[in-house]
Design a protein around this nucleic acid. Structure first.
Lengths: 130, 130
DNA sequence: GTGAATGCAAAAACTTTGCATATAC
DNA sequence: GTATATGCAAAGTTTTTGCATTCAC
């Protein structure tokens, strides 16, 4: 991932990349820093922000701004997906709808655009079942 | 709008509301403040942020975090719409797709959720047309 | 060896808050 | 008259940056 991004492989970046690749959730910069420090205590806040910014720029990471508060990150998944957020618990559900993706393409096309990227976030509340 | 939100109608809030209702674009808090001050120079930054937050909370305003940088606001439109952003110019195109809306509902339902809100932003590049 | 990366601490960018005063109702 | 809103300035939160030092290549 670091080599792919054309970056020098430092201990600190390895720790940060490791955290991102292993995290099943969507940590913010502070959480990434905390976790990275467990792997390498020398990681600093500055390096964390710099590495997150660079990897996001190079397309190896996705930055989300779900709500107010700090940006949250995840390694760019092999398969693209969008997010559904439980407004009561904050839980994040990942989903993919090929139909929505296709419709997005068509909408953009109608306006003379090709899609470079997109963010789709649904905010939902659990339906009382039964 | 202010009365609807159950707020006292002050000169400052009138200026801010006026700005939002008149703006065709998506100004950030600083731009709202600048514009509101042209209508009433006594408007302060604190009141701007407070009013934006309250109106957004009460559903009269929409706050967007398209990219990094400050949140951007628009009066809640009569008809809901989503946004397509030209990555080269920053231009914001508003669109609505009933099909996408419907599919979102279905996706959420599949996971046991009902949609409370959603954010869909497409980032696109103009297609060189013949 | 050299350019890139680092930590530190300061600064910048954005937003919220405490408090005394003013104002809508 | 009273609860709400205001401006101001300070503080809070999140992110970026300058610079001397260290390190990957």
């Amino acid at each position: 991932m670091l080599r792919g991004a054309g970056l020098r492989v430092t201990r600190q970046r390895q720790a940060i990349a490791e955290v991102l690749l292993r995290s099943g959730d969507h940590p913010d910069a502070e959480a990434v820093l905390d976790r990275a420090r467990r792997l390498d205590p020398s990681v600093s806040q500055a390096t964390t922000y710099r590495t997150l910014a660079t990897l996001a720029e190079r397309g190896y990471l996705r930055a989300h701004r779900f709500n107010s508060g700090p940006a949250r990150f995840e390694a760019e998944p092999a398969a693209h997906h969008d997010h559904l957020i439980d407004v009561d618990t904050g839980e994040v559900v990942e989903f993919l709808s090929a139909e929505i993706e296709e419709l997005q393409r068509r909408v953009a096309e109608r306006y003379g655009y090709e899609i470079v990227d997109h963010h789709l976030v649904l905010f939902g509340r659990r339906i009382a079942s039964g």
